[in-house]
Design a binder for these strands. Structure first.
Lengths: 348, 348
DNA sequence: CTGAAAGCGCTTACAG
DNA sequence: CTGAAAGCGCTTACAG
């Protein structure tokens, strides 16, 4: 008996087709298609509508996605391409996208090696799924050139690329300037910058905006005091360990990090070496990850609206997929500094 | 000129079909299909193989995923259903899955409200994509009953459900017992447990194994000292704030948390209230998230092999999709305690 | 309002 | 070794 049930459970249930529904309702498959897709307006009689609806319910019919996609020429899949899903920041972006996309579209995540973009070949394979739309997070120009999509496409966090395709961007420069101003206001004169090694444009902007504002406010950043690592706590910790003796010797009293993850590495290593934060060294990052409020001391960080980023990008894409024009080709979302104990002794 | 380029870039490129390749190579589409899928063994002449390959390269032909799926009856999509992608733990699981699945399969992430499973309706829509296989993380029995998949299916982190489908599980009970033993060894006599409110089986096991071992080692856990919240730093912090006065009054000196995220909430609130960790209160969690090594103090945690979990699940599913039998229907991966400063003053 | 039919792009027996 | 043809499940002009 047991094994019987097992077998039954595993047996591939016979797929219910539109033809079966049509037979049961005594109509043509064309009529079934019309009803199943809600395109009945002035084209199907009330009588047939309810007949078909009943048959659909009885049989548990669901329009086959593959057959439908082939006939329409496009699927209901939206592909999200992103270089780094291990970043908690990104999980929030996904949440926003999901919300704005609604139940009509299936979200397919293109996952690759962390930090890498899919190769032209992978992209082709993805495109052969005939996606309804494409979302690309933090792209570089080269990848976009490879892409050459015809259909709806929206870029996320793609500063400078808004001419290539509609984009939703983050005004990271604003936050970077706030951070520099904050450090200058706290009396720092010599500061360091721990950069991200990823060639993404946003990191260039973060760094340049910070350096420019720092200079304007009378802080000096020695070019040799700008190490770079991948977005990894351990690597950031190692880079800081290697750099700290010289920084200390040369009177560096603050370090800005390209991401909070880099900053966690600094905090970790600082604890190991007994460097007092923020008294001996002020530390700050970008992203304002959920853990930045919990670390000790709390991490001063440039807050970026991750979920809103996903939400807006999803909305823009949706308009495109529905054939509407975009009111604005480029949206820019605000960033702002959140001050915590890692830069100010009094704060949390 | 500019707008001309723009238009050209957006223009949907004409899809290259097998028929076009066939015409160019002077063969039939059947032959093109055989070559494109590498099924030429003893069926296509060398001459035609190279002819077709050339045409494919020249035209940039890619087998259409939709057409192919319809003809085969199954797509190359693997769907991963999971209740919580915002958990960094989960990002690692995904990484593991991606790696073991290889480039043949596309990974589609079914994203829902955090903590929720997709409804039967959503699942039906997903299944209409004719996935090659299904991966379900931390499922509850009800969801699986709804599912009733016919095809390849592997469960992740589904203790007690291995009879329903092949599963890869984590031996969280072992880690839970290690944790209880560790606390008892440190001299704690009265402890609390901050539980997760999600009805997932793994949390029941974590709690019960911990409580059983605690009792066996002479530690008492008052049933009223087992609050539960969602997996959220803020909520955990609030729950701890509400509970701490009583715990303190009654001599509770340690709290085990169902996840590291819960523990971060405790650490955060403890700092606010000036509770010294670990002197006044020892804190520990499960998951060993990357940030647990960075928090201050470092968080003692039961390490769970997230990436391996994804890797093994992907491997099992792959076997199933390739029609092979599984050597073992259920795999169980070890967990073990990582001791840090949140429970031992001397440690990091 | 209704249904027969073509067509989406491919794969796979089948006959040669 | 090769190709004509049927079929996968649906959608959409089209003729009625």
């Amino acid at each position: 008996m047991d094994s019987g049930e097992q077998v039954q459970q595993r047996a591939r249930p016979r797929r219910v087709t539109a033809a079966m529904v049509a037979a049961r309702a005594g109509v043509s498959v064309a009529t079934v298609s019309l009803v199943a897709n809600g395109k009945t307006a002035g084209r199907v009689s009330e009588d047939n509508i309810s007949r078909v609806r009943e048959a659909i319910a009885e049989l548990g019919y669901v329009v086959d996605g593959i057959g439908s996609s082939l006939a329409r020429g496009v699927s209901s899949i939206v592909i999200l391409v992103a270089p780094d899903i291990s970043n908690p920041f990104f999980a929030k972006v996904i949440g926003g996208v999901r919300e704005s996309l609604g139940p009509t579209y299936q979200l397919l995540l293109s996952v690759t090696e962390s930090g890498e973009f899919p190769k032209a070949d992978d992209v082709r394979k993805l495109m052969s799924l005939r996606p309804a739309g494409l979302l690309v997070d933090a792209p570089n120009a080269g990848f976009l050139a490879d892409l050459s999509v015809g259909g709806p496409l929206v870029l996320l966090d793609a500063p400078g690329l808004a001419s290539v395709a509609p984009a939703v961007n983050l005004d990271v420069a604003h936050g970077a300037r706030e951070l520099a101003a904050h450090l200058a206001g706290a009396g720092h004169r010599r500061v360091a910058y721990l950069d991200s090694i990823t060639g993404t444009e946003t990191f260039t902007i973060r760094r340049e905006a910070f350096l420019a504002e720092a200079a304007a406010r009378g802080m000096s950043v020695d070019p040799s005091h700008i190490p770079a690592t991948t977005i990894d706590v351990g690597e950031a910790a190692a880079a800081f360990a290697a750099a700290w003796p010289e920084w200390q010797r040369e009177g560096v009293t603050a370090v800005a990090c390209a991401t909070d993850t880099h900053a966690y590495g600094v905090l970790q290593e600082a604890r190991v070496e007994g460097v007092r934060i923020p008294e001996e060294l002020a530390v700050a990052g970008f992203d304002d990850l959920p853990y930045s409020a919990t670390s000790s001391p709390g991490l001063t960080s440039v807050h970026l609206p991750a979920e809103l980023l996903g939400l807006k990008a999803g909305e823009q894409l949706r308009r495109l997929m529905e054939g509407q024009a975009l009111e604005q080709e480029e949206l820019t979302l605000e960033s702002s500094l959140v001050v915590r104990g890692s830069t100010v002794a009094a704060a949390t």
